[in-house]
Amino acid sequence: MIGFIATRLFQSVIVMLTVALIAFALFRFVGDPINNMVGQDTTLEERAALKERLGLNDPFFIQFARFAGNAAQGEFGFSYQHRRPVSELVAERLPATLELSLISAILALAIGIPMGVYTALRRNGLLSRAFMTLSLIGVSLPTFLIGILLILFFGVILRWLPTFGRGEVVDLGGWTTGLLTESGLRSLIMPAITLALFQMTLIMRLVRAEMLEVLRTDFVKFARARGLPDRYVHFKTALKNTLVPVITITGLQLGSIIAFAIITESVFQWPGMGLLFIQAIGNVDIPVMAAYLVMIAFFFVVINFVVDMLYYAVDPRLRVDARGGH
């Protein structure tokens, strides 16, 4: 078990270093960092002095090590556009994105899994067919269109929900949350649904397919033949086995919820990381882009690590080495 965790951690570090290298290359070699920082009228001597002071004359590996070391502490330098430390900007924006992603993920799982199970068990039911048809729409409509339609309907025509921003937020010692105020919660509804819809339909279809597969297995048949009640067979036997493969895909999907929040954040003018990133691209704000890249990679790595641990917890077959087997 410890060996397993150690291996996984080691792999995670490698992944993070690779991403950091790409981010660093972006920072160092796309455009001239000096040019981006100083004005037109800076003299060549001043430029050279600045270059020396920023350590841009040092060997590649020393620069990279410095970059990686700073990144590990959350330091990504100064934003060219905002003239503030990137870490400050991120700290401001991160809670918005994480809250949105988390609520979306919970929505996607809490609705997607039961719907998947239901459509698998009542394969030919009217409601199942309705779910399946709706899910097809959910998969095929682009996210921004769903967002715009929601805004049009609930925001503009019915005027029930705010169409942009986070509403009022409460500051909890560095973490701003919109979950504690009414306007914050109301603002969250539409972006969260927009972001969750695609994942929800995907999870539903995945759970359904896996569940149908598991329901055909011998151990389900044998459980039925032992006279165990449907509730037991469906939820204790079948669902648990269904979740083994679902966990992997879901884990990856949660990562992409955070990454794909960009589009939803743009549509709803949600003041999160995604919006920050889009603006950074527009203004060639490379430190912000590098920071975003590293952060997203970090989330993916953490989620994957958690998924591997979950796998370990759910499936006893993976534990065979640790327990000695036979």
Partner: peptide, 29 residues
């Protein structure tokens, strides 16, 4: 089923729930 008629299937490798202990499966039944 199970109470008065017991069934045994062909493939023992796939007849048991892989995620539950033997104990759980026996006790629940």
């Amino acid at each position: 089923r199970g109470r008065r008629i017991g069934m045994i299937f062909q493939d023992p490798l796939t007849s048991l729930d892989p995620l539950q202990t033997i104990e759980r499966q026996l006790i629940d039944t």
